[in-house]
Write a protein that binds this DNA or RNA. Structure first.
Length: 425
RNA sequence: GCAGGGGUGGUCGAGUGGUUAAUGGCACCGGGCUGUAAACCCGGCGGGUUCACGCCCUACGUAGGUUCGAAUACUACCCCCUGCA
């Protein structure tokens, strides 16, 4: 196979197994295993899903098929050279399943006090040691190649949710130019062999990429990972749609991103300060317009309710820091809503966090014990709450997939929202 | 017994005549967290009453007195710590 042909061959297999309204259930075949969708991807910014060991991520009660890493943070520390010398992010952290890396575009938003944007890229004042660092589409692609992640994100400008039409337009256009530059540099790097996560090409034939219409498949085939082959072994790269809450700009951004051409498409710039109603409105307007033959990824979202609501609007992939961050901060997500483990009312409560949860934490520990650990500042509290929250998010997605496949998603959605809105007692 | 030091709100600890219901820390109570600058941040924290501004009561070991006014200066007593006997 010629180097030139490499990026023309698919990096992902994508199959829709079932649809229920806009909701779709399927699977995404990456070079490092199958990801059943809709999927929740735990966030491991610095090469660690905070507080959760990889053994636990792989255990049956979590069974995460893909996690995130962050280009900006890993670039600052330990640095691309260390990652390359260690054979890429998978080897470095000891995780053989799939990894998606965010490009650093979110840090353009979250570190807005420490950066300056120009056409060329973004100058950051490192929060680690104060030195100036310059991140551009090209650098982001280079770092992500050194990381060897399985899904690379284009470098975008993530804008605050309340951005005006004018500001959002200018930003979207910058993001579109950066998308093209990201794609160009990405392709060069693949041809140059810079991708440390490269796997052998699988030669059994081309990967079928369907048109988004469900295909009949048995669950056994699904579990086995499907019969398709023909992945190129290269990284996949996703483009990101911006445009804040302005639907016309969102549509334009989508068109321009698709024009560049990516292996998948993401909605960025949501859950960044806009009203929730507007977030749903944007997802509802944009997701169905995204290419049906590619996975759709809603970046940074969200609460359990957000996940279910966004699946209903056509989204396939999610990530969010919420289960781990909120877990560290004492909040548990349950089938009956949020539970603040700090509350005095749980001091002597012998029940698990969630009666309906089968996770290792709920099988073994009481609210009273978890509260005691938290109040005492024991790090185990953060570990156990993070574990439970991830279990709840991942299990919710399992139920979502099952409901879509069995044609009961509408009922599932209604009952789920009633449950989580009913209040923990 | 003598000499010195000290007793402040749940706790430690500021304050040493006047917006002092009393700075801070901790503890406690509650809230927030959405592509992780986050094991973080914010609020409350004597009692009663009011929708609210507020008003009333009780409080700096105990009891007295001095003063327009005392946690703060004075007197007596109680208790604790240190040293000497």
């Amino acid at each position: 196979m010629s180097a030139q042909a490499l990026t023309a061959e698919p990096a992902l297999g994508w199959r829709v197994l079932a649809r229920d309204g806009e909701a779709r259930a399927g699977f995404l075949r990456t070079r490092r295993g199958v990801v059943e969708t809709p999927v929740f991807m735990p966030v491991g910014t610095l090469g660690s899903v905070k507080g959760v060991r990889f053994e636990e991520l792989e255990a049956p009660d979590l069974d995460a098929s893909i996690i995130l890493g962050n280009t900006y943070h890993l670039w600052l520390r330990p640095g691309a050279e260390v990652l390359r010398a260690c054979g890429g992010l998978h080897k470095f952290i000891g995780w053989e399943r799939a990894i998606l890396t965010d490009s650093g575009g979110f840090q353009v938003f979250s570190l807005s006090d420490l950066r300056r944007i120009s056409e060329e890229g973004v100058e950051f004042r490192s929060q680690v040691d104060g030195r100036l660092c310059f991140l551009s589409p090209e650098v982001s692609m280079e770092v992500q190649a050194a990381l060897g992640s399985d899904i690379v994100m284009a470098f975008d400008e993530c804008l605050a949710g309340q951005a005006t039409h004018d500001a959002a337009r200018a930003s979207l256009e910058l993001t579109a130019r950066w998308a093209r530059r990201s794609r160009t540099r990405f392709d060069e790097l693949q041809r140059e062999g810079a991708d440390t996560g490269r796997t052998e090409r699988t030669d059994a034939g081309p990967v079928a990429r369907n048109d988004g219409e469900p295909v009949a498949r048995s669950d056994e085939e699904l579990v086995a990972g499907g019969d398709e082959d023909g992945l190129s072994g290269r990284q996949a790269v996703f483009g990101i749609v911006q445009g804040a809450t302005h639907l016309d700009l969102r549509r334009e951004s989508l068109e321009r991103t698709v024009e560049v051409g990516f292996d998948g498409y993401a909605i960025g710039g949501l859950s960044v300060g806009e009203e929730k109603r507007l977030m749903y409105e944007v997802v509802e307007a944009v997701a169905p317009l995204m290419p049906a033959e590619s996975p759709r990824y809603l970046m940074g979202v969200g609460t359990p309710e957000d996940l279910v609501e966004s699946v209903a609007r056509g989204v396939d992939m999610f990530d969010c820091v919420m289960p781990t961050r909120n877990g560290r901060n004492g909040q548990a997500f349950t089938s009956r809503g949020k539970l603040n483990i700090k509350n005095a009312r749980w001091a002597a409560d012998a029940r698990p966090l969630d009666d309906a949860c089968a996770c290792a934490v709920c099988r073994r520990h009481s609210r009273a014990y978890l509260r005691h650990l938290f109040m005492s500042g024991e790090m185990l509290a953060a570990v156990l709450l993070s574990h439970h929250n991830l279990a709840f998010f991942l299990d919710t997605m399992r139920r979502v997939r099952q409901a879509i496949r069995s044609g009961e998603f509408t009922r599932f959605r209604r009952e789920f929202l009633v449950g989580t809105g009913s209040g923990v007692e």
